[in-house]
Write a protein that binds this DNA or RNA. Structure first.
Lengths: 147, 147
DNA sequence: CGCGACATTGCCGTTTACGTGAAGGTATGG
DNA sequence: CCATACCTTCACGTAAACGGCAATGTCGCG
């Protein structure tokens, strides 16, 4: 097995474009828990942690969600932990499938929220284009045939 | 002529779903200026003010822009005032056309910013769908043929 | 004309999302 | 073995976006 490269906080933060402070803050809010701690209690992050951080950053920066909203979107971290632990604790395929279906539901909710946001933005684009068109029409009245 | 119905701050605020406090704050930030003041110096808002407030609210709530970004999007209010005044001050069609073309450029910038945001959200949707698909595949492995 | 509802400016309080040390423990090259 | 560059927790500081008061002025009806 590959020994799974674990990153310390400033490496992980740099990787996803955040500050160590922000990463600790997100942990404080319950948005994620580092995969492990070192001997001297340093936080250690794996690839799924990085994905999660990128997702959080995306929701915050691109989607403009507050961290409280992000928390709701991700469900609380304890539920995730429990789900993860439960998944590995059982070898019953039916149980595992149930856990995965829960996860699927969360993904669907995330996708729906993003789509809703996109729709609202699309409406704003339409409105802006309508204003643009009115102004363009005025210009054409003043200077007809300026193609 | 219709005497142009002017609204006082709490009416205007209620109309667009804001609090009077927020409306005053937006004014303080230079995002808008009420169309008029009453005898006793009450703020009075007309329909274009309401449109502007709805636009600001949309940018803040739907698009998730900070008020500072909104300010940049709207260009500073003085420029708009000057444009408006200048437009009515001149009867030179060429001059008027120039003012309108400036406005057109701002609209184009707004549309571009909104489109950029939509694109980033679309990418997030794609990523979320990829995660969903991976989980769905896992479920199918565990419980094959669950349509 | 007088009362209550609403307005004004001004200022301080609050929440969010961190930044910025302080005081101390930890990993590593010279 | 020690410097220094990182880490830890704890704690306070700050900018943004308001909310909530105080002191005062204004509108409108009965």
């Amino acid at each position: 097995m590959t020994p799974v490269r674990l990153l310390r906080i400033h490496e992980a933060a740099a990787e996803v474009g955040l500050t160590p402070r922000s990463v600790r803050y997100y942990e404080e809010l319950g948005l994620l828990t580092p995969a492990a701690r070192s001997e001297g209690d340093y936080r250690l992050y794996d690839e799924t942690d990085l994905e999660r951080l990128r997702f959080i950053k995306g929701l915050r920066d691109d989607a403009g969600f507050s961290l409280a909203e992000v928390a709701r979107l991700l469900e609380d971290e304890e539920a995730r932990e429990r789900g993860h632990a439960a998944y590995h604790a059982t070898s019953d395929p039916a149980e595992r499938a149930r856990i995965l279906r829960d996860r699927l539901v969360r993904y669907d909710q995330q996708i729906e929220m993003l789509r809703t946001k996109i729709d609202r933005l699309a409406i704003m684009v339409d409105e802006a284009e309508a204003r643009r068109a009115r102004t363009a029409a005025l210009i054409d009245e003043l200077a007809p045939g300026a193609t």
